[in-house]
Design a protein around this nucleic acid. Sequence first.
DNA 1: CCAAAAGTGTTTAAAATACACCCATGC
DNA 2: GCATGGGTGTATTTTAAACACTTTTGG
Lengths: 250, 250
Amino acid sequence: MLNDILDNSHNYQPGLSIDCVIFGFHDNQLKVLLIKVNQNNKWSLPGGFIPINEDIDTAAVTVLNQRTGVEGVFLRQFGAFGNVKRNEHHFDKKVFKSLKIDPEKGKWLTQRFVTLGYYALVDFLKTIPNSGQYETAEWIDHKEVPELILDHKEILDKALDTLRTELNLMPVGYNLLPEKFTIPELQKLYETILDRKLDRRNFFRKITNIGILVKLDEKKNNVAHKAPYLYSFDKEKYDEVLKNGLNQGW
Amino acid sequence: MLNDILDNSHNYQPGLSIDCVIFGFHDNQLKVLLIKVNQNNKWSLPGGFIPINEDIDTAAVTVLNQRTGVEGVFLRQFGAFGNVKRNEHHFDKKVFKSLKIDPEKGKWLTQRFVTLGYYALVDFLKTIPNSGQYETAEWIDHKEVPELILDHKEILDKALDTLRTELNLMPVGYNLLPEKFTIPELQKLYETILDRKLDRRNFFRKITNIGILVKLDEKKNNVAHKAPYLYSFDKEKYDEVLKNGLNQGW
DNA sequence: CCAAAAGTGTTTAAAATACACCCATGC
DNA sequence: GCATGGGTGTATTTTAAACACTTTTGG
């Protein structure tokens, strides 16, 4: 795939890449989809390049779809990363050899790159991590992220930081949870993102007062203990709140 | 200046630019520093290119310093803009002729450009808009911004939107006001950014409770009516709040 | 029947809002 | 002296925080 790009490097925006921080929620863990290029001992964020005839947001959607198979997810640009030496020494002869890349063509990869960071919220269960021929894709708990290449750790941290901030400005669950979910599950999501416990009763009141939840006439099956009610989002109201924001401070 | 860049275009990151939305506050107006290239009838945001050996943030600081002369101001990246056709047809033969640019060299300018948006908050009075040989720089009330080139209006709108949101997450006045200022002035600043009236008494309580203001033993001179007290910011506490944020919602 | 999780209400504290009076100054 | 803007306090409403009991279910 990289070779395809290098054969047509004039069709790509030079020196500019996209890296996606793809968040999913499962087993009460906030997970991040990471990529490992075979024989490399570091992991990386799924990324890609920008076709010269595609909007940057479109290119980001493409990266996301290639990696997760899901469509119509929440995707938001959160920053550009462009320290001079961020990709210095990343591609060298050894790497080109292992990836079977002609070093002459590979030069395109050794130029200075600025990368655009996008973060995505996806439904873990609808998502099939897409491993390529030379690489492995895997969900990893954000608390157990191994060493990453380049400045990808910094990018990931910024993404999480942005997500935490945006949690105060917009609702979030729609993209990370299945269509039907319980309030305790939603609360766990919030607790996991914020990394602290919330009071059950106060959370219930606050989240229901926003007016984006619909209580269904079903309870969750096959659970130990008292069965919690299922809810879904009122998409229309959800989108309205997404647009207008919550918690206006002044 | 453009010719200097074109003579050394290999020293610049290709297809990537920086545009700055520089905000200042004066006469109870939120002003934006805009540039007009002579003989062109549209205005534009002050922008620049990224030296291949400079961090993107450093390049943004350079653009800002060139245009305003101020240093150490608040500067924050708020987005990348990269629709495919955003700079299509922007530079043509006519433009090259009027700018005395060799069309062959000028080709570098006609490639597809992605731009990084930064917004800056600067002290209006310390700022000298820096006009170049071929262009004029001018402070313009954000409510009276004329037609802008390319997608600069979109960039400006996004900057203002970001500023409004960040007003709920961080204090702001330090960069936009002179060292000594009055509470009513600070309130006007907030009102101008938010585009609505705030209650005087409630604003006073809220802003003083943040704990970033120092009341000075002076009053403002030469004013009609009762002289308001002067205040300054406690920079240490201000920076602390900047870092930790205010109004945590959950 | 009991442990574990879920549903819900009440009391208290804090914050936001609404509102009113007095003070200083220029004209 | 009066219009205008500035300083400050209080009462009320709203929202957030703290907290406890009852219900349901599987084992």
